[in-house]
Structure formats: C-alpha cells, structure tokens
C-alpha cells in the first residue's frame, strides 16, 4: 500500500460538495412539501438536479483521490470505514421507526379497523410464495457477494467479476418481483394503517435494494477499469456491507410484516 501521505490527518482536498449537497437536500425536501401541497414539481426537480450533480461530482472526486492520486492512506481509509459504519447505524434507526409504527398499529389494532390484524377486508400476500422467493434471492446474493470478496482478496479478477455480476442480477430480479407484487397488490398505501405501514416499510426497503444494486454496479464498472486491488478496495467492501444490511432488513420485514403480520 502507498505510504507517501502529505500529513497524518484524515484529510483529502477541500471540497464544495458538502455545501452543495446540503443546499440540494434542503431544496429537495422543501420541493417535496411544495409538491404535496400545491401539486407543482418545479422546486422538487431543482432539488433532484442539485443532488444528482453533487453525487456525481463528489463520488467522481473520491474515485480520483482514492484510485489515481493515492490519497486514501490508512488514516483516510479508517475514516471512510467509520463513516460507513455510522451511516449504516443511522439507516438501522431509520428502519426501526417503520417497524415501530407497524408494531404499534398491529399489536393492538384499533376498533376502527375491526380490532383485528390484518384489518377487516385487507387481503395480505401469501408469505410462502413470491416473498419467500425474494428471501432466497437476497440470501443467495449474500453468498455471491462473498464469492466476489474472496476472489478480489486472492487477486482473481475474473472470479470477482462473476461473483459481482450474479449479485447484481439477483438484486435486479428482486426488484422486478417486488414491482410485480406491488402492481398485483389488492391493497394500496391508502388502504388503512395496514397499507400505510406495509408500503412505507417495504417501499423504503425496495429503494435501498435499488441503491445497493447501483452501488454494486458502480463497483463492477470500477473493477473492470482496474480501480481495485487485492488490498485496496474499500469501495467494494462498503457496497458489500450495505448489501448485507439491506439483506438483514429484508429478513426482519419478511418475518414480521409478511409472515407474522399476515
């Protein structure tokens, strides 16, 4: 590993992207509220443009600093690891709030929904059909991503490519099955607290699957461009951590919402 760092701190270069990111997030959320109330998407679209431009340029800079400029020293990499760990912990709490809403509503169902769960006249999914298949798919993708990880640690480029490729395909397959389930669902997000908690929790999980798939896809592209090496591939490790996190959230969703809650 390169050891010629300029200073002993966790610093790379000065960057405007945290500032533009903050402006983008503020614009996005304000624009979303404006959309909900006034049905006008202008500010929302502006927010998306700022966020997407920030993401593209920020991650482009990280790739340059880490891959081409050798600025990801041990100290910097340690900071990246901590950043990813803290980010995933904050994501865990994000999902805890949806599980809280679900258990709050399902453990003592209101009289207005028939004092029963699922509420009167709600037909939930059969957990042993497509949801079970989805569970197997995500667990399989956890195995294939480990295949890729072991391959890169042993300097095997083509095995890393294969493992990563299968993981991405499984992620896309999961998303397609969820889309099918959503379209075929006999209940919607507006159908009682059941629909609200169901689509809020599984919808945000689905969004995370798509983000995780994209993260792994970027890793595959970077891998094919030889950005990673045997001992310098934290971008891929972070994607694998994130993918395992998404996988574990699904197991909780499957057990509590699809299975127990049906």
């Amino acid at each position: 590993m390169k050891n010629n760092f300029n200073h002993p701190y966790h610093l790379v270069d000065f960057s405007p992207w945290p500032l533009t990111g903050a402006i983008g997030v503020m614009t996005l959320v304000t624009g979303m509220i404006k959309w909900f109330h006034n049905f006008n998407m202008n500010l929302l679209i502006l927010g998306y443009i700022i966020i997407i431009m920030t993401m593209y340029q920020w991650w482009r800079d990280i790739c340059r600093e880490g891959t081409l400029q050798g600025k990801h020293t041990m100290m910097v990499t340690k900071g990246l690891r901590w950043g990813m760990i803290l980010f995933i912990i904050s994501e865990i709490f994000f999902f805890i709030s949806f599980f809280w809403a679900f258990f709050h509503s399902s453990l003592s169902p209101n009289i207005q929904i028939g004092s029963m769960w699922p509420p009167l006249s709600i037909i939930p999914f059969n957990p042993f059909q497509i949801p079970l298949l989805n569970t197997i798919i995500l667990i399989t993708s956890g195995v294939t991503v480990t295949w890729a990880h072991h391959a890169i640690m042993m300097n095997n480029k083509s095995q890393m490519t294969q493992g990563l490729f299968f993981t991405i395909i499984l992620g896309i397959y999961f998303t397609m099955l969820q889309a099918y389930e959503y379209i075929e669902a006999p209940f919607s997000i507006a159908d009682s607290i059941y629909g609200s908690t169901f689509f809020m929790a599984t919808g945000f999980h689905g969004l995370h699957v798509m983000i995780g798939t994209l993260f792994l896809l970027i890793c595959l592209i970077r891998h094919l461009k030889n950005h990673f090496s045997k001992n310098h591939h934290f971008g891929f490790e972070a994607a694998a951590w994130y993918w395992h996190f998404v996988d574990v959230v699904w197991l909780f969703l499957y057990i509590s919402i699809y299975w127990w809650g049906n």
Partner: peptide
C-alpha cells in the same frame, strides 16, 4: 490480507444457493 477461498463460495453459490 488473510487468504479466503473463493472456490468454496462459488460452489455454494452455484450448487446450493
């Protein structure tokens, strides 16, 4: 840096998962 065996994981992927 430790040695992982990708062959085990490839076999698990293809023949079990």
């Amino acid at each position: 840096g430790s040695h992982g065996d990708w062959k085990l994981w490839k076999n698990l992927s293809l023949f079990v998962a």
